[in-house]
Computed example of a mutant assay.
Amino acid sequence: MRIIRFINEHSVPVLGALTDDGKVYPLPCADFMELVDQAEKEGTTPSDFIRSNIQSIKPLAAGLEDLQLLVPIVAPEVWAAGVTYERSRDARNYEATGGKLDAATFYDKVYDAVRPEIFFKSTAARTVGTGQPVYIRSDSNWQIPEPELGLVVNKEGKILGYTIGNDMSCRDIEGENPLYLPQAKIWKNSCSIGPAIRLVDTVEDPYDFQLTCRIYRNEEKVVEGTANTGQLKRKYDELVSYLVRDNEIFDGTVLLTGTCIVPPNDFTLQDGDRIEIEISGIGVLSNPVKRPSTHSVAV
């Protein structure tokens, strides 16, 4: 069972349930956290709450492909974990050392450390959904998507569901100096999530999600990579425990769990590209790449 948000025929955002056979049912809740709260009040799981509510109603005549999808949850904050896969560690080392792959760096240290890297990624205003453009920075020449599994959590850190995230990154800015990480990660439309949330109690093995990232240029596929969450070095509960440690988070926060798919080192995103990130059981997050025509420049 998956949860989506879309614009209905009255131009109003509504919550919907997407069944595994592709049928969409409108739900009597304004947003994902209200759904979770209603299920909790009735002493049941969100998936059982949904099943009981859709028994007496018909699915929408429109299919998923006909709907204008929104972010599945308006996440007040998006956080991210870094260097959680070996491939990510190697890529970060390449950036930091100028290609000297045998040179050890602080990325090796954090990969092997007890404490994971957790950093702030985005706010609701900077986060877009499937079909909406992600932006590239005007002051970077080496930019890539980072396809990641996202954890949707409540304020206590309980994992409620799984979604897809794109942690847009500037490899040259991060590689120049680790203190530049916020600028390498956070800017307008630098994060996308969606198209759905897979409810946690409907997932048999969360360490067996298959991830695929495809990048198209002029409708020709120029990059494709695959990974599996079984390659993660750390467990989800471990990452969440560090996020909430001495920290206040909010219901509906999303924590991205790191990437294992990195485009070739000579690749950078360009205006007009299209990024597709697919995760088994969740869907496909698709975003066109745009370079805004105007930028705010500090004087």
Rank of each mutant, 00 (worst) to 15 (best):
Q68L: 14
L69V: 04
L69H: 05
L69T: 08
L69C: 04
L69A: 08
L69W: 09
L69R: 06
L70V: 08
L70Q: 08
V71D: 00
V71L: 12
P72R: 04
P72D: 04
P72N: 09
P72F: 09
I73L: 13
I73N: 13
V74R: 09
V74M: 14
V74I: 05
A75G: 10
A75P: 01
A75C: 13
A75D: 03
P76F: 02
P76D: 05
P76T: 08
E77T: 07
E77G: 05
V78N: 01
V78P: 02
V78A: 10
W79H: 05
A80E: 03
A80S: 13
A80G: 13
A81M: 01
A81D: 06
A81W: 05
A81F: 05
G82A: 08
G82D: 03
G82L: 01
V83L: 00
V83P: 00
T84N: 15
T84G: 01
T84S: 11
T84H: 03
Y85R: 02
E86N: 10
E86H: 10
E86V: 07
R87M: 02
R87Q: 14
S88T: 07
S88L: 00
R89H: 01
R89S: 00
R89I: 02
R89K: 14
D90T: 08
D90R: 14
D90Q: 12
D90H: 05
A91V: 04
A91K: 07
A91N: 05
A91P: 04
R92N: 11
R92M: 04
R92C: 10
R92H: 13
N93M: 00
N93T: 15
Y94I: 08
Y94K: 09
Y94R: 06
Y94F: 14
Y94P: 03
E95P: 03
E95V: 02
A96Q: 08
A96I: 06
A96L: 12
A96G: 00
T97M: 10
T97Y: 13
G98S: 12
G98H: 09
G98T: 12
G99S: 12
G99R: 08
G99H: 08
G99P: 10
G99I: 12
K100S: 14
K100C: 10
L101S: 15
L101E: 14
D102S: 14
D102L: 13
D102H: 15
A104I: 13
A104V: 13
A104N: 09
T105D: 11
F106R: 06
F106A: 13
F106K: 13
Y107F: 15
Y107Q: 09
D108I: 01
D108L: 01
K109E: 11
K109G: 06
K109A: 11
V110E: 02
V110P: 02
Y111G: 00
Y111A: 10
Y111H: 14
D112Q: 11
D112H: 12
D112Y: 12
A113E: 06
V114R: 12
V114T: 15
R115Y: 06
R115A: 10
P116A: 10
P116I: 04
E117T: 11
E117N: 08
E117W: 11
E117Q: 14
I118L: 08
I118W: 05
I118Y: 03
I118E: 10
I118T: 05
I118A: 04
I118K: 04
I118N: 06
F119W: 12
F119Y: 13
F120R: 11
F120V: 02
F120W: 14
F120D: 04
F120T: 03
K121P: 00
K121G: 07
S122G: 05
S122Q: 03
S122F: 08
